[in-house]
Amino acid sequence: DGLLNQMTKAVLDRVMQAEMTGHLGYESGDPAGRGSGNSRNGKTTKTVSTMNGPVAIEVPRDRNGTFEPTIVPKRA
């Protein structure tokens, strides 16, 4: 759990939050999201392999289950 892995996790988490914002069309906590039909719905833990070893990340979920981050896609 070295510094590089911590930085990788931080970058991935931030990018996935930005992707979620783009997917939903509003920022976290924005009142514009109320009644939108879809909203943030927690996170799922996932481990990704990097050149420096495994990194545990938290992938955000949406209520409709339609969010799929492009930076960390599902396995084929």
Rank of each mutant, 00 (worst) to 15 (best):
R75W: 04
A76S: 14
N38A: 04
D13H: 10
A18P: 00
M16K: 01
K43H: 13
R34P: 02
N41A: 02
T47F: 05
G22A: 13
G35E: 05
L24A: 01
D1F: 08
P69I: 14
V11Y: 10
G53D: 07
R40A: 08
V72W: 12
L24I: 02
A10I: 02
P54C: 11
Q6D: 12
K9D: 04
K43G: 01
R63C: 00
D1W: 08
L12H: 02
R14I: 09
M7N: 07
P54K: 13
N38C: 02
T45G: 00
R14Y: 15
G33K: 03
G53V: 05
A76Y: 04
R75E: 09
T8R: 06
K46N: 02
L3I: 11
A32N: 11
S49A: 15
K43S: 08
K74M: 03
V48I: 15
S49C: 08
G42E: 03
S49F: 10
V15H: 02
G25W: 09
S49K: 13
T45D: 02
M20P: 02
N5I: 03
A10N: 09
D1N: 10
S39A: 15
S36D: 03
G25M: 12
H23W: 03
G37R: 00
M20I: 01
V72H: 12
K9I: 01
G25K: 08
E27D: 13
K9N: 06
S49M: 14
A56W: 04
R75C: 06
N64A: 15
N52Q: 14
G65H: 15
L24R: 01
Q17Y: 07
E19A: 08
Q17V: 11
V48L: 12
E27R: 14
F67W: 05
E68M: 14
T44E: 03
T8Q: 08
T47V: 13
I57V: 09
H23L: 03
A18F: 08
D1E: 09
G22Q: 10
E27P: 09
S28V: 07
L12T: 01
K74S: 06
E58M: 07
P31N: 06
E27H: 13
T70W: 14
N64M: 13
D62K: 09
L12P: 01
G33R: 02
V55G: 01
G29A: 06
V55W: 05
T66A: 15
G65C: 12
L3D: 10
T47H: 06
Q17R: 12
D1T: 11
N52I: 09
N38M: 01
F67C: 05
L3Y: 08
R40M: 07
G33M: 02
V11C: 07
G65S: 14
S49G: 13
P73K: 12
P54S: 13
E68L: 10
T44D: 00
T47W: 07
G2Y: 07
V11R: 03
P73R: 10
